[in-house]
């Protein structure tokens, strides 16, 4: 079997490749979205910890 025949899919190329393509796209999207929101949540919490560290430091200075 050669490659052009393979991509031709017996004339159903558009339907088969679109179906496989949107599936691959959706799985990648689910993965990336989970990874991005992980980075976002972690940096939010780290910022919060840093902010509170400064506040307690300033309080210690003024006392």
């Amino acid at each position: 079997m050669n490659w052009s025949e393979f991509f031709y899919m017996g004339g159903y190329a558009f339907y088969v490749w679109t179906a496989w393509g949107i599936t691959a796209f959706a799985l990648c999207w689910l993965f990336l979205q989970a990874k991005l929101s992980n980075a976002k949540i972690k940096s939010e919490i780290i910022r919060q910890i840093a902010r509170e560290a400064i506040l307690s430091e300033n309080n210690a200075d003024s006392n």
């Binding site: 980075a39 780290i46 910022r47």
Partner: peptide, 20 residues
């Protein structure tokens, strides 16, 4: 997520300097 144990992109120390 303590800054000492985990420091992604050096974020905490920069914020510390900027905000203090």
């Amino acid at each position: 997520l303590q800054p000492q144990t985990l420091q992604p992109q050096g974020l905490p120390s920069k914020i510390l300097q900027a905000e203090s």
